[in-house]
């Protein structure tokens, strides 16, 4: 594959000598317009790479915060076509910040896959993280995505041992996403020392950048985890900030967009500290 937006962004981060901040929010949470305004504001608030969740009714690897975000989005009428439209609107204003779609395989499979990949590329999607597509299913989505010039970003877990790591790395591109806890998103708190050791051992096996996520919530944690990784992913905390900002009717308030962007600003400040 020729260098992608993701490759260029990690090269720039390396030149700056700091870890990147990867932010996750769910497309359409709590509604299309608010989610789009959040998305538009993320680069200026300090997000280096944007993960955009594709809502799914049965998010098996997600904790309560991201489950709730997906349900809010679906309830507001979000679907895959609207998610791609949101990316296209973003791409019209920002040609450099990478966007990675994250979610589950089924909504892609029924789209169906080839049409989805063509539409995603056209909209300006740079990468995919599909939780339930392990290397054993590479011919389903990973290889076709690469053919469309879209990075397929693989997750590695604490249960991924040295024997399995090469299998996980084989068709991974863009970066590797290290799942810092044995569990679902936004639950346990990762131990930076353990994470750094694991990232160091992964880096012996690959030249790909390694981003660390699942359970990173505060600027302090982001800073600590970021010291031993190429990027830190924060998701549940941002989605939690959306939830807290909602009115009693569950709808967005005047403070929703700024609640998320202010948290991104402080996270971004933390990963920039030496």
């Amino acid at each position: 594959m020729t260098p992608t937006r993701i490759d260029r962004r990690f090269a720039a981060l390396k030149a700056e000598g700091r870890p990147g901040l990867v932010t996750f929010v769910t497309a359409g949470d709590p509604d299309y317009k608010t989610a789009r305004d959040i998305l538009f504001g993320l680069p200026a608030a300090g997000a280096d790479i944007i993960e955009l969740g594709m809502p799914f009714s049965d998010p098996m690897a997600d904790g309560p915060a991201i489950q709730a975000a997906g349900l809010r989005a679906l309830k507001s009428g979000q679907n895959m076509r609207k998610t791609l439209q949101m990316v296209a609107e973003f791409r019209a204003r920002d040609t450099e910040t990478p966007i990675v779609l994250m979610g589950y395989y089924n909504p892609i499979f029924v789209y169906p896959t080839d049409e989805f990949l063509a539409d995603a590329k056209k909209a300006g999607v740079d990468g995919l993280i599909i939780v339930d597509c392990p290397p054993e299913a590479d011919d389903e989505l990973c290889l076709p995505a690469m053919q469309h010039g879209i990075n397929f970003i693989r997750l590695a877990a604490p249960t991924t041992d040295n024997k399995r790591l090469p299998i996980v790395l084989k068709n991974t591109s863009g970066f590797l996403y290290y799942v810092s806890i044995t569990g679902i998103t936004g639950t346990a708190t990762p131990d930076p020392t353990e994470v750094h050791a694991k990232v160091a051992s992964i880096k012996k096996a690959t030249t790909l950048p390694v981003a660390v996520g699942f359970g990173v919530k505060t600027p302090e944690q982001a800073k600590a985890i970021g010291r031993g990784a190429d990027a830190v992913v924060v998701g549940s905390a941002l989605v939690g900030a959306i939830e807290k900002s909602l009115g009693s009717d569950g709808k967005a308030t005047a403070g929703t967009v700024s609640a998320v962007l202010n948290l991104v600003k402080s996270l971004s400040g933390a990963v920039r500290q030496r």
């Binding site: 098996m60 690897a61 339930d132 597509c133 392990p134 997750l155 590695a156």
Partner: peptide, 10 residues
């Protein structure tokens, strides 16, 4: 097939 998260694969 085996459409599961990496944590479960091993």
């Amino acid at each position: 097939g085996r459409f599961v998260a990496e944590t479960l694969m091993p």
